[in-house]
């Protein structure tokens, strides 16, 4: 199985570094050989939601004011222990709202209709097809999963912030200080972060893994849909088929996976 070979290689790597020795190999890779005990296995949860290429469609017609966004943002930030910092320079944001001219910088014009001009648009990590942040990261602390989700490994991040310079969407935040004192109510099922690492939207990878939809989807009353962009039968594909949608800065070629119906 691909997975056990992969973990074997990882263990072999650790062993080569002299950190661990034979006993570790016994744990993960050997058993099968002696005795009747089968090898240990790793797998996903049975109920996990999977896709070939995750994507999101936001129907902005269903939002009318900043207040409509608040519960969605709150759901996201609460569940992920995103701190509320008082100093704006140190702000951490996974999901937030901004005006059309700031979100779609290449598409704005003076005479755009009033609804769109003053409508707040939800912004988050675009989980790009060719993410510039992943290219920039010197430790693979940020990486793209096979299913298209761009993730952070907080254990590995050295805090160089190259990814923040690389991201053309301003989707990344840095922990300029210990975030814990600024988390009002800790969700103990999700870790907080420590000072000195970068963070961003994780497409609720931890929820998809146990069969739940992302928190923003649940809180959006149907305004946000996520699904498999590679599956023509999926709900997101149906929405993309039947509506005119735009993406942020498509001209940069990063291939954002978040679509907006305007």
């Amino acid at each position: 199985m691909g997975n056990s070979r992969r973990s074997f290689l990882k263990v072999a790597g650790i062993t080569a570094l002299g950190i661990g020795t034979k006993p570790v190999l016994d744990v993960f890779a050997s058993s099968g050989g002696h005795g009747a005990e089968p090898k240990p296995e790793v797998s996903q949860n049975e109920e996990a939601l999977t896709a070939k290429k995750w994507g999101m469609v936001i129907d902005t017609r269903k939002f009318h004011s900043a207040e409509d966004l608040d519960p969605i943002i709150e759901a996201c930030h609460k569940i992920h222990n995103v701190p509320e910092l008082t100093e704006p320079k140190h702000e951490i944001m996974w999901l937030w709202g901004d005006e059309y001219k700031h979100v779609f910088t290449h598409k704005e014009h003076e005479l755009i209709n009033d609804r769109i001009k003053h409508l707040p648009f939800l912004v988050l990590c675009n989980h790009c097809e060719k993410p510039a942040c992943v290219r920039a990261c010197p430790t693979k602390a940020t990486f793209k999963r096979d299913d298209g989700i761009v993730l952070m490994d907080f254990h590995r991040c050295i805090g160089c912030r190259f990814c923040m310079a690389a991201c053309p969407y301003g989707s990344r935040s840095f922990n300029f200080r210990d975030p814990r004192p600024f988390i009002k109510e800790e969700n103990k099922d999700f870790p907080t972060r420590m000072k000195g690492v970068v963070e961003k939207c994780n497409f609720c990878a931890e929820r998809l893994a146990v069969g739940k939809m992302p928190a923003c989807v649940e809180a959006s009353n149907g305004a946000i849909t996520v699904g498999d962009l590679d599956d023509p039968e999926s709900e997101v594909r149906e929405l993309l088929r039947s509506n005119y949608t735009i993406r942020r800065k498509p001209d940069l070629g990063a291939g954002p996976s978040v679509y907006y119906i305007v």
Binding site: N3, R6, P40, V42, Q44, R145, L151, D153, H155, A209
Partner: peptide, 17 residues
């Protein structure tokens, strides 16, 4: 190993021998 498997490979269940 577990954290790499969970964070990077999206596998969360470990079944012992």
């Amino acid at each position: 190993l577990w954290r790499d498997t969970v964070v990077r490979d999206a596998n969360r269940i470990y079944k012992t021998g």
